[in-house]
Design a protein around this nucleic acid. Structure first.
Lengths: 142, 142
DNA sequence: AAAACGGTTCAACCCGACTTGAGGTCAAAT
DNA sequence: ATTTGACCTCAAGTCGGGTTGAACCGTTTT
């Protein structure tokens, strides 16, 4: 079965052993067995860890990610679908932020944030579409 | 100039007023002026807030995002370039996570995480490339 | 004139996600 | 035989990013 102890498991998934104990405490990943009190992890557990870590790094709360893995019956499908949307928005925002930054580093201006019209327009667009649609309206219409 | 007080500014950028005070305390965004003790924000400040908020939501620490806006001289260009890379990785991971989830919700298996070979293969790939390259080697080679 | 509204300060608290430290166990290497 | 290394538990601490609450201050509506 090729079971690995906590230190090795942690190394394999790129986390600290303390984090694995913490995940266990949270009920997210339980070692498949214990040999002489020591936690032993199998493939299945490493996969869970890797999945959870990936989602966590993307800003998905651990409990939400855990629900995709463990929600009873068909419930997990709904959670998974929601997370696809969350990730979609993440990707869009990240790309928008990249456009802004890419422009900035190519910009001849001393500092785009204050001098460059293109930067300014891009940042204003970053805002539009999320909560900021009113900017052009009520206030601040130069 | 169209200055707005803190509550309106917060509403426009989709944050709480308390967060704007906190950003000020951190030295990230200072109201352009105060009128009778009250913070007043202009366009420039709203843009800073929106940029910072966007970066923060993507997992970029506030200080790092602030450095893009304020690093002296040309230093900000290097920080910006780094953040483009960070965001690139973010996008790749998010897409990988989406693939896994998309497959999962289409999968006929009771629960992909335990039953579906495709899911398993995808999660294993999530790991490869980040710290997990050794999985196929040393341990756990079934 | 008094209540409501939106602002102010400051200190304290909260939350998620861990990490750290003290004190102990056990097996293998020196 | 003892030291080293990896593990154990449990309580407490840390860090980023805020929020909350108390006590207060000016307008402006009722």
């Amino acid at each position: 079965m090729d079971l690995v102890p906590i230190g090795e498991a942690a190394r394999l998934v790129g986390m600290n052993a303390s984090a694995l104990r913490y995940y266990e405490e949270r009920g997210l990943v339980t070692p498949v067995t214990r040999s002489g009190g020591r936690r032993m992890y199998g493939r299945q557990e490493l996969r869970r860890l890797a999945f959870l870590r990936t989602m966590q790094q993307l800003g998905i709360p651990l409990d939400t990610a855990g629900a995709v893995l463990d929600a009873p019956g068909e419930a997990w499908r709904a959670t998974a679908a929601e997370q696809i949307d969350v990730l979609e928005q993440l990707v869009n925002r990240a790309k928008a932020a990249q456009w802004v930054l890419r422009h900035a580093i190519e910009c001849p201006a001393e500092h785009p944030a204050v001098e460059c019209e293109t930067w300014i327009g891009m940042v204003d667009q970053l805002l539009e579409g999320y909560t900021f649609a009113e900017l052009a309206g009520k206030h601040l219409t130069e």
